[in-house]
Design a protein around this nucleic acid. Sequence first.
DNA 1: TGAGACAACGTTAACGCAAACACTATCACC
DNA 2: GGTGATAGTGTTTGCGTTAACGTTGTCTCA
Lengths: 342, 342
Amino acid sequence: MSREKVTLSHVARLAGVSIITVSRVLNNKGRFSEATRARVLQAASQLGYVANTAARSLRGHPTQILGMVIPELVSPYFAELARAAADAASQMGYDLAVFTTSRDPERERERVGALLGGLADGLIIVVPIGSAAFLASLERSRAPVVLVNHFGAATHLPVVRADSFEGSLAAVRHLLALGHRRIGFITGAAHSSQAAERLRAYRECMLAAGLWDERLVRPGDFTQRRGVEAGHELLSLEDPPTAIFAASDLTAFGVIAAAQARGLQVPQDLSVVGFDNIPTAAHSHPSLTTVGHPIQAMGQAMVDLIIKAKAGEQVRDTLVEFPSELIVRESSAPPRTPGEKI
Amino acid sequence: MSREKVTLSHVARLAGVSIITVSRVLNNKGRFSEATRARVLQAASQLGYVANTAARSLRGHPTQILGMVIPELVSPYFAELARAAADAASQMGYDLAVFTTSRDPERERERVGALLGGLADGLIIVVPIGSAAFLASLERSRAPVVLVNHFGAATHLPVVRADSFEGSLAAVRHLLALGHRRIGFITGAAHSSQAAERLRAYRECMLAAGLWDERLVRPGDFTQRRGVEAGHELLSLEDPPTAIFAASDLTAFGVIAAAQARGLQVPQDLSVVGFDNIPTAAHSHPSLTTVGHPIQAMGQAMVDLIIKAKAGEQVRDTLVEFPSELIVRESSAPPRTPGEKI
DNA sequence: TGAGACAACGTTAACGCAAACACTATCACC
DNA sequence: GGTGATAGTGTTTGCGTTAACGTTGTCTCA
């Protein structure tokens, strides 16, 4: 019923015991009589006492909060990743605080420091922010940190990542097996290592098949808007592709929209394959052939690693890698043979 | 270069000054000579000093972190809301920590308390978690809190919300004006007050037009999956609707997928209108007619209110309400007249 | 009956930081 | 040459919590 903050000493006074006794009862740690326990709980509840997290943390008590830094919230892939981590954390009795990457690396560094300086018990970092120096300083801090989808600078920090290469290879081979020869590709965002892997797989596969053509590759940024644009660009070629592999599902949907806007049918006139297996991919028409990561398992792995690190287990140089998997749905089919044009 | 945590006193020792001098230099507060400043900064950087947020917070220093509690990350609407809040917060020099709602109300209450007990300077709560009692206890705590899209129990806490009624009314009237008479509706999640408003507008409008038919209303949950199902349900009626208004864009896309799977064309055979104006709505084919909220402005309003409250300004009973707006795109058109069936 | 065991609770200190206050030079000025 | 202003710096204290240790009281058993 008080209006300002209630501390242990208020509860203690009301219950007629010492501060430390209240602390023990509320933390269920140490010895106390049943009668005391009842009185303390009654007093605490009457005053609406809530422990001050900052003080606890200062004293070395864990906050039960894990921090997660992701590039953005709006992208379905990152949203799913965050959800998976949140689920796993919740199951282990933690809360997950999600932050989006700051544009300013200096500020980013400060924030990571602040998080580890009492706010969070551990940190899940989804993109390699900043330099090798930054990673090195994280290492030195000995804080429980796990990097996700990190392919960059060498580090001893534990890493959870999903392969993009094999899945992309499977996607392109799937299109080749269907009989496609002109297969377009729309890349992901320039700085993304995952995007680089997807492009690498496409390039390698097309080169091996003797089908590489630079004009079939268009830059993208994982967005649907760019998918529409790049789709039109590819379909405007004098010798347009019969299939397009996009580095994200959103981009793939953009391609489908572009194709439909031009009066083309998917998959009859154009096969489209995405990447990410976002929820929408299964519930669109046509449903989307795509490559997926085991996101639930990745979330679990991140949280497990953090908790292990907190418990003092050795996690240096741990690398947990998950496979990507091709999921064939309706948006990919054999190309029309020359004879059966509309 | 140290491996354990570096405190002010370490920096002080290395710089050959007292703790408070280091504090002053790093916070750029109070007086100190240029020489001292340089030595302190050098020492701090050499040791990799980062201020301990918990200790600062305990001392009354703000953390520059705002907390936000949303029901889920994966829904595009909430993701956009979080993004808007994060942008606004960043602009004001704050970081935004996003939490998803816990299933357990007791745990939720604890967490909110913990956040306000030293972790965050303020809290943006997107759904009315729990009871009037919970809101009352939040009020008593005098912490900077703002409720978003709260339509429930009476409270003196500041509220930012967007209208859903007028926009929904406009959507249904738009379909009526196009000539539709059988207009289906797919609701949002059962517990959502926004969903209730959208249904209320639909119902009121259809009743007023003398077109109300209970069978045209199907329960939904804002998801695309459910949109596919409910779409098939509606289109399987003996007298199917010529237009469907869905309480979310994802659901609307589900309806479109269902229609297309049945060989129907949108909008020629079926008009579809969504709600939320998610980014995808503009870049799909057909692009989606929908109702939108001014999400950027809402995010700004949330953060402004929190900051005002922190500064001691009176925000009791403040209600900032934003209008919803119909955005007409390609997915809505006049119904086929009886004569022009396929 | 008194020594010892142990349960129940309290006192004190410390976590890292910054505000309040206190102190010492240095300098200007009458 | 003393007064006071001011710049630069240090000491102390307390934020709310919990760990370590200390104290008190009760009970058991030889």
